[in-house]
Computed example of a mutant assay.
Amino acid sequence: MKKRTIAIYGREFNPSVIPYVQQLFSYLKDKEVAIYIHADFYKFLQTKIKCADDLLLYYNYRDLPENTLFFLSLGGDGTMLSAVSQVRDSNIPIAGINFGRLGFLASIHKTEIATALDAIFDNNYKLQTRELLQVTGHDQHIFGEENFALNDITIFRHGSSPMITINVTLDGELLNSYWADGIIIATPTGSTAYSLSCGGPIIMPGSGNFVITPIAPHNLNVRPIIISADSRLELEIESREEQYIVSCDSKTETLSTNTKLKIERAPFNINLIRLETVSYFSTLREKLLWGLDVRNY
């Protein structure tokens, strides 16, 4: 019988989770699953656990076979964001085992690995389609092939410079000139991340919207605004330092204020695996502590 094939990606982790990682690989060995593992992560694992000899290495998304059932991310939400660059437009669904703290994206608890993977292999799960953002510069190719973001694209002032001015045009019409430390353009997935901490709203995945959230705006009347995901944004930045910083999830670049940006929906989506016992609202209640009142404890 042909082996089922999965891919595994991760980053360096705390020694406290080594038993769970060992449990994962023992489980997959018992299930006779063929494993493609990221080469850099494999080098790290060899220093922490006893690795099987039959693991297959991959270096980037081009190396993943078409018959990959799913992509398994080991770590926290930051690792899940990096995993998107490993999957790209392959349509391979992503599941995350949470070795981090919050776990909005990496939804499988480390103590429930076997139960969760049993359900996935038995097709007892749902796929959540998530939209991404894409950023391009008018005069340079920023972020190379990884110019897309699952959470957000953010513009920051550079260093200790005073606030910057960000002139934002939406579908050819001036939206606003933001005097602020920066702005966040977030997807529904990213609406519960940095944007939320800056006062942005929570947006349900699949709603067909993005949100623009200013960071410490000079004019307090400037509030976050929800826009259509079909919108095309063009940004021009003014700063005394003649530089600014743009981040694309966990990636950052420093650009000249001569560089104009275009931000729009990426040409592909990614699919997150969600178990039948997990829902978007249950995740919100758990992670944001909705409904809890310290007076009841």
Results as ranks from 00 to 15, higher is better:
169 T>Q: 10
229 A>F: 06
209 N>P: 03
215 I>Q: 05
196 L>T: 03
228 S>K: 06
151 N>I: 00
217 P>A: 11
201 P>Q: 06
231 S>V: 03
9 Y>F: 15
257 T>W: 08
257 T>A: 07
196 L>S: 05
22 Q>W: 12
228 S>A: 07
28 L>Q: 00
171 D>K: 06
284 L>V: 05
291 G>R: 04
234 E>D: 12
235 L>Q: 05
62 R>G: 06
21 V>A: 05
251 K>F: 08
1 M>N: 12
101 R>P: 03
74 L>Y: 04
206 G>Y: 00
203 I>S: 05
224 P>V: 01
141 H>P: 06
215 I>D: 06
40 D>H: 12
10 G>A: 08
41 F>N: 07
153 I>K: 04
43 K>C: 10
50 K>R: 13
68 T>W: 06
215 I>E: 08
158 H>W: 12
178 Y>P: 01
160 S>V: 13
193 A>R: 01
190 G>P: 02
246 V>C: 04
146 E>Q: 13
286 E>Y: 14
154 T>Q: 07
137 G>N: 05
208 G>V: 05
94 I>G: 02
36 Y>D: 01
104 F>Y: 13
241 E>Y: 12
104 F>E: 00
185 I>F: 04
1 M>A: 14
204 M>H: 13
155 I>F: 07
240 R>M: 12
63 D>Q: 00
242 E>K: 13
218 H>Q: 10
236 E>Y: 12
93 P>Y: 11
207 S>A: 15
80 M>H: 04
232 R>D: 09
182 G>A: 08
21 V>G: 01
185 I>Q: 03
227 I>K: 00
93 P>R: 07
198 C>H: 10
262 K>S: 14
71 F>P: 02
144 G>L: 03
224 P>W: 00
103 G>M: 04
121 F>P: 02
29 K>Y: 12
145 E>D: 12
269 N>T: 13
154 T>I: 13
33 V>S: 01
250 S>I: 08
54 D>E: 12
142 I>W: 01
167 N>D: 14
288 L>C: 02
119 A>K: 15
218 H>E: 06
52 A>V: 03
104 F>Q: 02
30 D>T: 11
126 K>H: 14
174 L>K: 15
43 K>Q: 13
9 Y>M: 10
112 E>M: 11
36 Y>C: 01
125 Y>T: 03
252 T>W: 07
3 K>W: 05
273 I>R: 01
131 E>A: 09
227 I>L: 15
272 L>R: 05
113 I>G: 02
46 Q>S: 13
38 H>I: 10
36 Y>W: 09
18 I>V: 15
60 N>Q: 05
295 R>G: 00
30 D>V: 11
70 F>R: 04
141 H>F: 14
231 S>P: 01
226 I>W: 02
261 L>H: 04
218 H>T: 06
139 D>T: 15
82 S>A: 15
111 T>A: 09
219 N>R: 11
280 Y>L: 14
53 D>F: 08
12 E>T: 13
168 V>A: 10
16 S>D: 10
33 V>R: 03
31 K>W: 13
56 L>V: 08
82 S>Y: 11
187 T>M: 02
208 G>T: 05
218 H>A: 07
161 S>G: 12
215 I>N: 05
70 F>H: 06
219 N>Q: 09
11 R>I: 08
78 G>D: 03
205 P>D: 06
242 E>P: 03
5 T>V: 15
1 M>Y: 10
71 F>M: 11
